[in-house]
Design a protein around this nucleic acid. Structure first.
Lengths: 241, 241
DNA sequence: CGACATATTGACTGCCATCAAGTAGAGTGG
DNA sequence: CCACTCTACTTGATGGCAGTCAATATGTCG
């Protein structure tokens, strides 16, 4: 589909623009051990903007952008995990999505963000000006189609999320979540129980109890609260509704 | 934004292709009283495919396409209301969206439908071959961008739906729903209580009780079960979370 | 009018939320 | 290395919102 030649422009060609609304780079970039995971469409897209993008680190729990702020940048995750969420007046929070290395977020139709984005872990992002992306998409059908593909992918995930929240039990929600996150045997949870709960439409207590119950059934095992081993993947799949 | 000249190609130019997976046209088209509501992006898009589209009627509660069927067509709603939903094995159902005149649905990334679509009321659709749309989008950035805009709009609605299902009470869900549907004073509900419940992640009984309660508060009034009058719109908005 | 589908209402249950301790890990400093 | 502390997580007791089961009422259409 997408051409796979991923040539980087040399660093000296890159713009060294000053980023007003974002923290300046304060430290040498953390060794991007997860950078290898960056692959596929978003990377191919990012390559098209090589020379205009900026790499920015964010501390754990820092705000990447807030609700209502202008949508000036498109965000590519290099390393770490990001949560995109909305806060209601009375403190209720709904996490729309977690974004992991290779994902793109923050590209919206409107000119202001409808959600806020925060760093779940230390995060490294590459930022490309939205205006650059939109301008290129207006000229190049391939880029425009890539944007469509991205949005349609987000839509699919959001639709699955709707099904999960609308019609699944606590056990099914947690099982689905673990199933999605688990690539190998061991699942590393970068997020807290509160984050899981706010993604799954539950409370921390229910998430915790459900995990304990899955452990009791021999379906999962804990190495630590954030490190889980899937002992019986087919049983997990059977539970996910 | 979009150019508003809505020139129809004469009927004799249209392809009269045979539609295998869809019902053939059996009856004269119902007077499309709602057709005037068709406006904006989707219509502009549809115009670009004039000469390749087919008009098809569907009876109330008939299936427009099923889960797993090939995504051969893009669907434009001319009149009536469509529900797009997913059925779980045990009978639980989640309605992803209702589509009203002017909306587009059934355009997905993959080659098979992830949801089924059904006619809530008698429905008239215009169908355009997906391959035509995709081929044109590959050449024309304007069309590709229109597709992106459509997908991004669907994504926004799905994200609002996630918030509703994840963190809102029954009262807030019903209030949100009425608020969205109500254009003027009176709301015409084309769908049953079961449909509302399956959209809102509730049961028919809870939907019914909540409506009765809103009536008791003087916020709404019933003309009939499917015809509701908003008596206090600001109170309704205050309830929607 | 009569019959069927749809909606409302009532009584009770249960899942998950809430409120409240208690426990375990990670980081810090002695 | 161990006490100290803080945060994150788990566990327990109880409550409430919405679900379930069941009956009644209302609309709609032949």
């Amino acid at each position: 589909m997408q051409h796979a030649t991923l040539e980087r422009s040399p660093a000296h060609q890159r713009r060294t623009a000053v980023l007003t609304p974002f923290p300046t780079i304060r430290a040498p970039q953390p060794a991007a051990t997860e950078a290898a995971a960056v692959a596929g469409l978003p990377t191919a897209l990012l390559d098209l903007f090589a020379g205009t993008e900026m790499t920015v680190p964010f501390e754990r729990n820092s705000e990447i952008y807030g609700e209502g702020e202008p949508t000036d940048y498109v965000h590519f995750v290099v390393s770490g995990t990001v949560r995109v969420c909305k806060l209601l007046d009375d403190g209720r929070r709904q996490i729309e999505a977690f974004h992991r290395p290779g994902a793109v977020f923050g590209l919206e139709i409107g000119t202001t963000h409808r959600f806020s984005a925060e760093a779940v872990t230390p995060v490294t992002l590459r930022l490309v000006r939205r205006s650059v992306v939109v301008a290129l998409a207006a000229r190049d059908p391939e880029i425009a189609q890539a944007l469509w593909t991205l949005a349609a992918g987000d839509l699919q995930r959001s639709q699955d999320h709707v099904l999960l929240l609308g019609r699944k039990t606590a056990q099914e929600r947690v099982a689905s979540f673990l199933g999605e996150l688990a690539s190998g045997e061991a699942v590393d949870l970068p997020m807290s129980r509160q984050d899981m709960a706010d993604y799954l439409g539950l409370t921390i207590e229910t998430v915790s109890r459900t995990l304990t119950q899955l452990e009791g059934n021999g379906i999962i095992a804990f190495r630590s609260p954030r490190r889980i081993v899937i002992r019986n993947r087919s049983a997990l799949r059977r539970l996910d509704g």
